[in-house]
């Protein structure tokens, strides 16, 4: 924001930015911890009868620096993404600055039937995929009638 041009040449670009800011400030969520959507990293959650699948979109974050914790049915993902720009170089101009930089932390409450011992986490193409198995006892089972 600091280096934004004083004479915007692209009206549509400016409108687009305005729309984004409006969305961020007025769109839903009276939560004290900020809006539910649009946080970093973005997350998708899905499930199969056997597992819970969580996808966290963490582009440019070294998987080794990610901290994933599962405690009492709550999954916490924390880490840091550094800004990729030369510090203190006065000859550079930042024209667009939209990518998230800084520390982040997101918390997901998981269903009750997950097995905390059976967690797999893989990172590929900037997406962290966490797969948690559900407890065998919680899976639907056919009961044979004798």
């Amino acid at each position: 924001m600091l280096y934004r041009t004083f004479f915007p040449r692209d009206l549509f670009g400016e409108l687009d930015r305005l729309q984004r800011q409006l969305q961020q400030s007025y769109d839903l969520s009276p939560s004290i911890r900020g809006s539910l959507r649009g946080g970093f990293p973005a997350m998708n959650v899905g499930g199969t009868p056997q597992s819970v699948e969580i996808y966290a979109f963490v582009p440019g974050v070294d998987p080794a620096t990610l901290d994933v914790q599962l405690e009492k049915g709550v999954l916490t993902l924390a880490g840091e993404r550094k800004a990729e720009r030369p510090e203190g170089d006065t000859r550079t101009t930042i024209h667009i600055d939209e990518r998230y930089a800084g520390r982040f932390r997101r918390v997901v409450t998981l269903p009750d039937d997950i097995d905390a011992e059976k967690v797999q986490a893989r990172c590929r193409d900037g997406v962290l995929h966490i797969s948690i198995q559900r407890k065998a006892a919680a899976q639907p089972r056919r009961i044979s009638i004798q």
Binding site: Y55, F57, D89, T92, T93, I94, I96, D97, R99, G126
Partner: peptide
């Protein structure tokens, strides 16, 4: 995708976040 565009004396550098793309 969110981008950063940074200009210096020799050119422009663009960073774009495209997670999940092979």
């Amino acid at each position: 995708p969110p981008v950063d565009v940074i200009e210096d004396a020799e050119g422009i550098t663009l960073y774009a976040d495209l997670p999940g793309v092979p």
